[in-house]
Write a protein that binds this DNA or RNA. Structure first.
Lengths: 259, 259
DNA sequence: CCAAAAGTGTTTAGCGTACACCCATGA
DNA sequence: TCATGGGTGTACGCTAAACACTTTTGG
């Protein structure tokens, strides 16, 4: 083990990058911002920024989330995901290849945020410098391969290693809604079983049987609690409204159909 | 978003810390090293060190693993976990609370390594400055609560926030062997079904039915491949030897019994 | 009345569990 | 012979999948 000499450490910059996912018009979308400066000037990138000197990593991610979306992050540990437009926020992974930023050594602690559908994004007031981009449009169908090859790829490719980060975030979201109640983070505070099912269908890119899905989610204790009212959103029998229940782990899990 | 000014970033040190897990004498154990310097002088800590200026995060973790154990890390992406005494290595999470190290701002990218049982550890040649400590002995029974309260706790508590990191690593290992073939990383290259079962029992702290376990692992295609020979290790009918197969995902997963 | 979405009931097949039973070795 | 661990067969119960069917709205 090398001697622990605090005065001789290599200089690093530490940033947080955000994979903010939402479901819009039956498609899984992510927030991207237009880069105003070199390198990768004019290209789309994940939102992010430097961690401040006295700031925790999670706090930096929450601050960036507010700055980019106005979304308030809630702590996954606190039982009730109370606020009306809160977003789930969790650490994703850390990316620190020596050459990932040509200017200097930057280590980025990526975070994953899941949000309900929102109005148009705001990025420092500049409207067309931020957008919700369909994940499929950025990563293509074969996500793993594209993400690996996308760096320095075509003009639609994300800056830096952000395609890889996005692919990892999407994969995390896809697997985590299997065995947790996280899919409710894509829904408004009150939602119907059909809306929740369309979240699963959009995130997984599959079709699910509405009848079996209904039985599954309403039959799992603590997953959903009735909110009282009913709604008619699109011609048909009105649906009951639910809120996310206290249960965070889904046992047995929701089964993702084979492709 | 704050302006992106590379010359004005706060100074960070970036380290890697290692949660190295193995199964020894039916108990899940982790590698800890004795700290020779302040702060936390004389206390046990997870092995780790600074990331070098031109070094990738995973490479730094692999280097530390070799320095501390002589273990060679294999890339989980490459299909055959070839080397005889290789260890599984993956990124765990990143810890960067502003006050986690009293001397300076340190962000630690923790990694998780799973290794087969080894001879006594070596730490720079100093024999009694490193040991395999039973996880239960460090974290106690109720791991989440203890890990949260352990910092600045009794003399047996790990330095810094390492109890939290260890608890997170153990939890990752416990959940990941459910749905992946990762448990074979705790076994030597050739092993019996009974040895693999004892790995599950030690990591989960439960008893599993030997007959159903045998059917489950031998019936999952690609999980185990027969290695040919048989062995008598402890009086009884000789057992077939197996190698880890190519399958990395276990579907359906191994079910962890309720406690 | 018809379309559309919500919700319920029923059947079937697969898998996990429990446990009886046989096999092969050392002492 | 017995003890010990390896391995197989079988019956039971639960759950997911498939799908027929009823309910409640809007047009």
């Amino acid at each position: 083990m090398p001697p622990y000499d605090p005065s001789a450490f290599p200089p690093f910059a530490v940033t947080v990058d955000l994979v903010v996912l939402t479901v819009r018009r039956h498609a899984l979308c992510t927030l991207v911002v237009r880069r105003g400066e070199s390198p990768y000037q004019g290209r789309w990138a994940l939102p992010g920024g430097f961690v401040r000197a006295e700031e925790d990593l999670g706090a930096a991610a929450a601050r960036e989330l507010v700055e980019e979306t106005g979304l308030c992050a809630y702590d996954p540990a606190s039982p009730p995901p109370v606020p009306s437009n809160g977003a789930h926020l969790e650490q994703l992974a850390t990316y620190g290849a020596p050459d990932r930023d040509p200017r200097m050594r930057v280590v980025s602690v990526a975070h994953l945020a899941l949000a309900p559908d929102l109005p148009a994004p705001r990025a420092g007031g500049d409207a067309n410098s931020a957008r919700w981009a369909p994940v499929e449009e950025i990563l293509g169908k074969d996500e793993a391969a594209v993400a690996a090859a996308a760096e320095d790829g075509g003009p639609e490719a994300l800056a830096f290693d952000h395609a890889r980060i996005l692919a990892d975030g999407v994969e995390r979201a896809r697997s985590k809604i299997e065995y947790s109640s996280l899919a409710t983070a894509f829904c408004p505070p009150e939602f119907t079983v059909g809306e929740l099912r369309r979240v699963y269908e959009a995130v997984w890119g599959v079709s699910l049987d509405p009848r079996n899905f209904h039985r599954k989610v309403t039959g799992t204790p603590g997953f959903l609690v009735p909110a009282g009212g009913t709604t008619t959103r699109q011609g048909g029998r009105p649906a009951q409204l639910f809120r996310a229940g206290g249960a965070t782990l889904l046992n047995p899990p929701m089964l993702r159909p084979e492709v």
